[in-house]
C-alpha cells in the first residue's frame, strides 16, 4: 500500500479549514487500524464540500475531527484561527457551541423537547437572555420554514420536518461552519431534495461553509466541490461549478462500486 500523502488544496478565497498530515488510528488489542492516513485538505470559507466514499472509509471520522468532537492520532486541524487538534476538552466544547453546527443522519432531536426547545438547546450555552434566545430560535425555525411548528414535539413531525428542526438547531448560534453526516440518508427523495435545497440556501444566502458526507451522487451534485475518501486517503478532488459536479460524482460513484 503506497502511503503517498494526498494533499488537496482549494485555490481560491480565504481558508477556513486547514488539515495537515492528519492520521487517525484505532488500536484494538495489538491490531492498529489506520482509518485516516496522512491526510491533508483545505476548505475555503463559504465553500460547500461533499465528502464521498464507501462505507467504512472514514468519512464520519474525518467529519468528527473537523467538528472537534474527536481527536487525531497525529497531524493538525486548523479551523478559522483555532488549532482544534490541540485545544482542551472544555475549550473545545465552548468553541463548538459558537463555531460548528452539526447535522446528523438520524436528526437526533431530543424527543421530550418541542421543536422550539430543541433549537434553544445550543442557545442555553450562550449568555443571551430568555427573550433574545427566543428571538434567535424563532429566527432559525423560520429560516427552515417551520416557524408554525415551534410547539410540536419531534414525534408530531415528519422525518423531513425533523431534519429541518435539526438544521435550525445547527444554525441557531449562527456558526460559520456546518458539518452534515449523510443528512438525507434516512429520507425519501422528495424530503431529501428539500433538505438539499435548504443546505444550498444556507450556503449561498447565509454564507455557511458546509462539509457534507453523502452516499448519494445526486446530493453530492449540490456541492461546489467533491472529495472522495477511500482506504484512508483522499483520492479525488473535483472542482466543479454547481450543476457540473453531477457527472463527476456519478462517475466516481460508479467507479467505486
Amino acid at each position: 500500500m503506497s502511503s503517498v500523502a494526498s494533499v488537496i488544496n482549494s485555490t481560491t478565497g480565504t481558508t477556513l479549514i486547514r488539515i495537515d498530515g492528519l492520521v487517525k488510528q484505532y488500536t484494538r488489542d495489538t491490531q492498529v487500524l489506520t482509518v485516516l492516513d496522512n491526510l491533508s485538505l483545505t476548505v475555503d470559507e463559504g465553500d460547500f464540500v461533499a465528502l464521498m466514499g464507501p462505507s467504512g472509509s472514514g468519512k464520519t471520522t474525518l467529519l468528527n475531527l473537523i467538528a472537534g468532537i474527536d481527536r487525531p492520532t497525529s497531524g493538525t486541524i486548523l479551523v478559522g484561527d483555532q488549532q482544534v487538534s490541540s485545544m482542551s476538552e472544555a475549550a473545545l466544547a465552548k468553541w463548538r457551541s459558537a463555531n460548528v453546527g452539526f447535522i446528523f443522519q438520524l436528526y437526533n432531536l431530543v424527543p421530550v423537547l418541542t421543536a422550539f426547545e430543541n433549537v434553544e438547546l445550543p442557545l442555553l450555552l450562550t449568555n443571551l437572555n430568555r427573550a433574545r434566545r427566543r428571538k434567535q430560535a424563532e429566527l432559525a425555525l423560520s429560516v427552515v420554514g417551520l416557524a408554525d411548528r415551534m410547539d410540536h414535539y419531534p414525534r408530531q413531525l415528519s422525518g423531513g420536518q425533523e431534519q429541518r428542526v435539526a438544521i435550525a438547531r445547527a444554525i441557531a448560534t449562527d456558526p460559520k461552519l456546518l458539518v452534515a453526516d449523510e443528512p438525507t440518508g434516512d429520507l425519501d427523495s422528495k424530503n431529501g431534495e428539500e433538505i438539499l435545497v435548504l443546505m444550498e440556501r444556507l450556503n449561498s444566502e447565509f454564507k455557511k461553509t458546509i462539509v457534507m458526507v453523502t452516499h448519494d451522487p445526486k446530493a453530492a451534485s449540490r456541492a461546489h466541490r467533491l472529495v472522495h475518501l477511500d482506504k484512508g486517503v483522499l483520492k479525488e478532488d473535483v472542482h466543479a461549478e454547481k450543476g457540473k459536479a453531477v457527472g463527476m460524482a456519478a462517475a466516481i460513484s460508479a467507479s467505486s462500486t
Partner: peptide
C-alpha cells in the same frame, strides 16, 4: 447515551 453525545456535540460541557 446518544442524546447526551448530541448535547456534548452542541457544546455542553461534561
Amino acid at each position: 447515551v446518544t442524546e447526551i453525545a448530541v448535547l456534548r456535540t452542541l457544546g455542553y460541557q461534561k
